[in-house]
Every structure is written in C-alpha cells, then in structure tokens.
C-alpha cells in the first residue's frame, strides 16, 4: 500500500498508453471497403443521417493537403457532431435516423477527397450558456501523423453565429479562423460544404488541443 502524501500526485496516476501513427493501412481496421475487404455485419462509415433525419441534408467534402501542397490520399477522418436540434446522439445505432459519429477516408468517393453525408448540426451551448456556432469536430489520422489532429468545421452561411462563437474567437488570428469555415456549394439540388484541411504551411488549418 502507498503511504498517503508520500508521493507527488502525478506519480499516483497511470500514464496514458502512447500514441502511434495509424499508418498507411489503417483502412484494413477502420475503413474495410477502402482496403478492399468485405464488410462485416455493421460498419461505422460516412452516412450520419438517413433521409428521415430532422434537419437540412448536406454533404461535407474536402481534401487533406500536406506541407508540399500534395494530396494526402491515405488519411482517415472521424466526425462528431450534434443533430439538427443541437443534441449529441451518443448511442451509436445504424437503425437510427441520425448518428453523431462517422468515419471517412480521403479516397472515399472520389480520388483524394473525403465525404460525409449528414445534416447541418444545430447550435450547442457550453456549460456557461454561451452558444457555439454549428460545427463538426473532425479528427485526422494518417501515416506520418503520430497522434490524431483535431479540428472543427464551421459553416460559411452562419456568419452571425460564427462571429459570436467562443471557440472560433479563441483563435487569436482572424485570418486563421477562416481556415475553419467550410464553403457552401450547390449542385444538382444538393448542398455541399467544402473544407480542405491543410496540415502545414500557408493556410494551415487550425488544430485544437482539448
């Protein structure tokens, strides 16, 4: 037994298992179709909302670009977002109309682009009551990324909410805030938001620690 107060408190805590890159073959484990493997009974993938889900049906698309301007074609992304009413649906259930969690890859539906089929999230309040603008939390995993990078996707057509969002405003540089704003496109009756993630250098996307 440990004598109370005999150790610095940090020493009484376990260390987190260390992270390692998900590597180039991450798809075998987390995106079977992209690896060329047959699907299992249920897979976690990029359709967060069915047509029955409340809210505006949208697609989120984008590329991941490295410091040389080259496409990162082996990235895996995870999305986490609220439903149209601003509530997280934590119980993952493929029978439900909406799930807050999904996965995609940069080769998912067209070369070098990732895609989520979802609905536009509602606003979520922080504990202090301040409303955050509608957003999607994204985690990026890839070969050459030693621990996942966290960012947030915001929506261009939510200018008022974006201007008041305490998290966007935590980014000191107004120019860098722009790296978090997805651009709205409409084609063939579909609403799509485009969000490129720049890992390094000019226009580098803001990444968060939390």
């Amino acid at each position: 037994m440990q004598q109370p107060n005999s150790q610095p408190s940090a020493a009484l805590m376990l260390r987190e298992t260390a992270s390692q890159t998900a590597g180039p073959y991450v798809h075998i484990g987390l995106a079977l179709d992209i690896a060329g493997l047959p699907p299992r009974e249920e897979e976690i993938w990029n359709r967060l909302a069915s047509p029955q889900a409340d809210g505006e049906a949208i697609e989120l698309v984008g590329r991941v670009i490295d410091g040389n301007g080259d496409l990162v074609r082996d990235a895996l992304l995870e999305a986490w977002q609220a439903d149209a009413h601003g509530n997280y649906q934590c119980e993952f259930d493929l029978q439900a109309a909406f799930n807050s969690f999904g996965r995609t890859a940069t080769t998912a539906e067209s070369d070098g682009e990732w895609c989520f089929h979802t609905i536009k999230p509602g606003q979520v309040a922080r504990r202090d009551g301040r409303l955050m603008a509608p957003h999607v939390t994204l985690a990026v995993f890839a070969r050459g990324i030693n621990i996942q990078l966290h960012t947030r996707l915001y929506f261009e057509d939510e200018a008022e909410a974006n201007a008041a969002c305490p998290v966007l405003n935590a980014v000191e540089s107004p120019a860098r805030r722009q790296t978090l704003i997805a651009k709205r496109e409409e084609s063939e009756g579909k609403v799509r938001y485009r969000f490129d993630i720049r890992l390094q250098g000019e226009g580098e996307t803001v990444f968060f620690d939390f």
Partner: peptide, 17 residues
C-alpha cells in the same frame, strides 16, 4: 510534411462537443 507548424489552440473550456 504532415506535421503542423503552428501551435495548437487549447480549448480552456471544453464543451459537450
């Protein structure tokens, strides 16, 4: 070429997100 060069922005008040 895949490592950010800017500092991460720390969220001092994490939310349900």
């Amino acid at each position: 070429a895949r490592s950010p060069s800017q500092a991460y922005v720390s969220l001092q008040t994490p939310s349900v997100s």
